[in-house]
Lab assay of single mutants.
Amino acid sequence: QIFVKTLTGKTITLEVEPSDTIENVKAKIQDKEGIPPDQQRLIFAGKQLEDGRTLSDYNIQKESTLHLVL
């Protein structure tokens, strides 16, 4: 699982696999929060994550925290 922290300070927990794409993660966030993926920007280690890449591409491991910017 990974954590996604929103600007409001809320933390969302997501069940993911390293092979999941960023697009996939955004879809999971939409399921939980109702935020359309095209409004979501995910930041990890100061980098904006691209939809077509996977979590493992960015070396995002379990218990990692991503930041969600709208």
Rank of each mutant, 00 (worst) to 15 (best):
T8F: 13
Q40R: 02
V69Q: 09
K10Y: 11
N59M: 08
N59G: 15
K10N: 09
L66V: 09
L68H: 01
E63F: 12
S64W: 04
T11G: 03
E15C: 15
L42V: 04
V25R: 00
K28I: 06
K5F: 06
G52R: 09
T21F: 08
I60R: 01
S56G: 11
I2E: 01
A27L: 14
V69T: 09
D57V: 03
L70K: 07
D31C: 14
A45M: 14
P37D: 04
S19Y: 14
T11R: 07
K47W: 07
S56Q: 13
L66A: 02
T54F: 07
Q61K: 12
K26E: 01
L49I: 04
L70W: 09
H67K: 07
G34C: 07
V69D: 07
Q30T: 10
L49M: 06
I29S: 01
I12K: 01
L66S: 01
K5M: 11
G9H: 05
G46S: 05
S19K: 07
I22L: 05
K32L: 13
H67P: 01
G52M: 09
Y58K: 01
K62A: 15
R53A: 08
S64Q: 09
V25H: 00
Q1N: 10
Q40S: 04
Y58V: 02
Y58M: 04
K10W: 09
E17D: 12
I12L: 10
G34T: 03
L68K: 00
K28N: 04
G9V: 02
T54P: 05
T54M: 11
T54W: 04
E23V: 09
K32A: 12
E23A: 15
H67G: 06
D31G: 09
E50G: 04
D20F: 06
E15H: 12
T11K: 07
L66P: 02
P18L: 14
E17K: 07
I60Q: 01
G9C: 08
I29A: 01
F3M: 06
I43N: 06
E17V: 10
K47Y: 09
V16Q: 02
F44C: 05
I22N: 01
D31E: 14
E23D: 08
G52A: 11
I22R: 00
D20E: 09
E33C: 15
K10F: 10
P36I: 05
D31R: 13
L49W: 01
K10H: 14
I12V: 06
V69M: 13
V16I: 09
S19Q: 10
R53T: 07
E50L: 09
K47A: 11
R41P: 01
L49G: 00
L66E: 01
V25S: 00
F3W: 06
L70F: 09
D57P: 00
G46D: 07
E23T: 09
I29N: 00
R53H: 11
G34E: 04
T6G: 07
Q39H: 12
R41M: 14
K47I: 14
E17G: 08
E17C: 14
L55H: 00
S64D: 15
R53K: 13
E33A: 11
L55W: 03
I12Q: 02
E33H: 08
T21L: 10
G9Y: 03
D57T: 04
S19H: 12
L70E: 10
G34S: 05
V4R: 00
P36T: 06
Q30A: 14
D20R: 02
E17Y: 10
V69H: 11
I35Q: 03
T21Y: 08
H67I: 13
Q30D: 05
L66H: 02
K47L: 13
Q40M: 14
D51M: 05
T21P: 05
K47V: 15
D51Q: 05
I43Q: 08
N24R: 13
F3Y: 14
E15S: 11
T54H: 06
T21C: 05
E33I: 14
L70A: 10
E50N: 07
A27Y: 13
E23K: 12
K26L: 04
L68D: 00
V69P: 01
A27H: 12
T11A: 05
E17L: 11
G34M: 05
V25E: 00
I35N: 03
T11L: 14
D38S: 13
F44R: 03
L68Q: 02
L55D: 00
R41I: 14
Q61A: 11
Q61E: 11
P37C: 11
Y58Q: 04
Q1V: 15
G34W: 03
I60C: 03
V25W: 01
N24K: 12
G52F: 11
I43M: 13
K10V: 09
H67V: 12
Q61Y: 08
Y58G: 01
Q61C: 08
A27I: 14
S64T: 08
I12G: 01
L49H: 00
T54V: 06
K32W: 06
A45V: 07
F44I: 04
K62H: 15
G52K: 12
E63R: 06
T8A: 12
K47D: 08
N59R: 07
L70M: 11
D57H: 11
K28Y: 07
T13Q: 08
D31W: 08
F44A: 03
N59C: 10
S64K: 04
V16Y: 15
N24W: 10
E33S: 12
V16A: 07
T11W: 08
G52Y: 11
Q61N: 11
I12N: 01
I2L: 08
K32I: 13
V4L: 05
S64P: 03
E63D: 15
K26D: 00
V69G: 06
L66R: 01
K62P: 15
L7E: 15
D20C: 09
L66G: 02
I29C: 02
K26T: 02
E23Q: 13
R53W: 10
K28W: 04
P18A: 12
L66M: 05
A45T: 05
D38H: 15
K5A: 07
D38A: 12
I29M: 03
I35G: 02
E17M: 12
E63W: 09
E15W: 13
E15M: 13
R41Q: 13
Q39C: 15
K62V: 13
D31L: 15
Q48D: 13
N59F: 08
R53Q: 09
Q1S: 10
T11S: 07
Y58L: 06
N24I: 15
K32F: 08
E63A: 10
K10Q: 10
K5D: 05
F44Q: 03
L66N: 01
L55V: 08
N24H: 14
Q30R: 12
R41G: 07
I60G: 01
R53G: 07
Q40I: 12
L7T: 12
V25M: 05
P36A: 10
I29P: 00
K10T: 09
K28G: 03
E17N: 11
L14R: 00
I60E: 01
T65G: 03
I2G: 01
F3R: 07
D51W: 03
N24F: 14
T21W: 05
Q39T: 09
Q48E: 15
Q40E: 02
K32R: 09
A27G: 11
E33D: 05
K62M: 15
L42I: 07
D31M: 14
T21N: 05
G9L: 03
G46Y: 04
T13R: 06
T21H: 04
E17F: 11
T8W: 14
K5Y: 06
E23C: 14
D51C: 06
D51F: 04
L42N: 00
R53V: 07
D57C: 04
Q39V: 11
P18Q: 08
G34Y: 03
Y58C: 04
P37R: 13
T21R: 08
K26N: 01
Q40D: 01
